[in-house]
């Protein structure tokens, strides 16, 4: 279970998080929605320790995320980055097996390659892709490789940062389905940030809306449409008028 208690983070005068409280139960898929620049990525990166909160506490299964032993802590996580964040200088299979080729999870090269090819298959990519380089793949394929890398070491917790950004609607649907299948199949706890409502409906068990640095609304995805929360209503229906200020 991931818990955030009164998490604050500011960048200079810009107060991004102003007291975020959120609980993600073990094995659940939580999707955080909110407009651009509301601090969704900062929230996610705070859990991983990529950003250090100014105030507040983040725990994973009761363990303080800031004080945990980094290697063991991060070994529990997999993450799909918005742009894939594949390493240009490494082949596709080396990207997928990155964690299996070094550090505490290191395995023999042939075994790591086999696992990588299996994970590539799992995300719908053929073994022939394994020896190509990231620049030789399309955006959708790079996202799949990123997904394969995120699940390569069988993590307990998987984070997805804007998984469908930049993809066409069909590829977005494919990625959403894959994410849902993998999360259910692995029994992993998932945290996704997105402003793509089709992703929310496909991936989420629980939804949280971040606005003005706090969680404005949280609840099961099924309750989202009848929440009665004006902020959430405006966001999910994409209306320009409402309590959320829009720049025109």
């Amino acid at each position: 279970m991931i818990e955030l208690f009164d998490v604050h983070k500011a960048f200079g005068p810009n107060k991004v998080l102003q007291g975020v409280n959120l609980t993600i139960p073990k094995g659940e898929s939580m999707v955080i929605i909110g407009g651009s620049g509301t601090g969704k990525s900062v929230c996610l990166k705070s859990v991983l320790g990529l950003v250090t909160p100014d105030k507040g506490l983040i725990t994973v299964d009761g363990q303080d995320a800031q004080r945990a032993e980094r290697d063991a802590f991060l070994a529990r996580f997999g993450m799909l980055f918005q742009g894939g964040a594949l390493f240009d200088s490494l082949s596709i299979w080396e990207n997928v097996a990155f964690r299996l080729l070094r550090g505490s999870l290191k395995r023999p090269k042939s075994e790591a390659r086999e696992i990588a090819i299996e994970k590539l298959r799992r995300v719908g990519l053929k073994p022939e892709v394994a020896d190509l380089f990231p620049s030789e793949l399309s955006g959708g394929m790079q996202k799949r490789v990123g997904l394969a890398r995120a699940i390569a070491a069988e993590p307990e917790i998987i984070f997805f940062d804007e998984p469908t950004t930049g993809l066409d609607p069909i590829m977005s649907g494919v990625i959403n389905e894959l994410i849902r299948e993998i999360v259910v199949e692995m029994g992993a706890t998932a945290m996704t940030i997105t402003h793509d409502m089709s992703s929310v409906r496909a991936i989420a068990d629980q939804v949280a809306m971040l606005h003005d640095g706090v969680i404005q609304w949280t609840g099961p995805v099924g309750d989202m449409d009848a929440s009665g929360d004006p902020y959430l209503d405006q966001f999910i229906h994409g209306r320009a008028d409402g309590p959320i200020e829009s720049v025109r």
Partner: peptide, 13 residues
């Protein structure tokens, strides 16, 4: 810029 450094950290490197 392309978050590869962040990716390294999440991959325990």
């Amino acid at each position: 810029v392309t978050e590869q450094i962040d990716a390294l950290v999440t991959l325990s490197t």
